[in-house]
């Protein structure tokens, strides 16, 4: 649940989602759920020429299980806070 709440804090930020089929999509994070399914808005595909069918897609839903990486904005992670939360979760509290 830690990363779920982490992504919930990130809502509204600009992220790049790289999928397991090498498709990379950049967009504004609109919402996220417990499976880390992601909904992006104002999307554009990083390598547009290779994926012509994605040209007119503006908003999309991405299934959590096909995500390889989520590239965050540079100031998107408070490392101290994440360390803290991770340790707390590892202790089981």
């Amino acid at each position: 649940m830690l990363f779920f709440s982490y992504f919930k804090d990130l809502v509204g930020g600009e992220v790049t989602v790289e999928l397991k089929n090498d498709l990379a999509i950049r967009g504004t994070l609109h919402s996220v759920d417990q499976y880390l399914n992601i909904k992006l808005e104002n999307t554009r595909v990083v390598d547009q020429d290779k994926y012509p069918h994605m040209l007119s897609v503006r908003n999309c839903f991405i299934r959590g299980s096909v995500v390889r990486y989520v590239q965050l904005p540079p100031d998107g992670v408070d490392i101290e806070l994440l360390h803290d939360a991770t340790r707390r979760e590892a202790r089981g509290g």
Binding site: L19, K20, N21, L23, I25, T43, P52, H53, M54, L55, S56, V57, R58, N59, C60, F61, I62, R63, V66
Partner: peptide, 16 residues
């Protein structure tokens, strides 16, 4: 089997 579900923008060209 689903990777992505995208809404098509009707004002934009679907393909180049």
């Amino acid at each position: 089997n689903v990777v992505l579900i995208g809404e098509l923008d009707l004002e934009k060209e679907e393909l180049p």
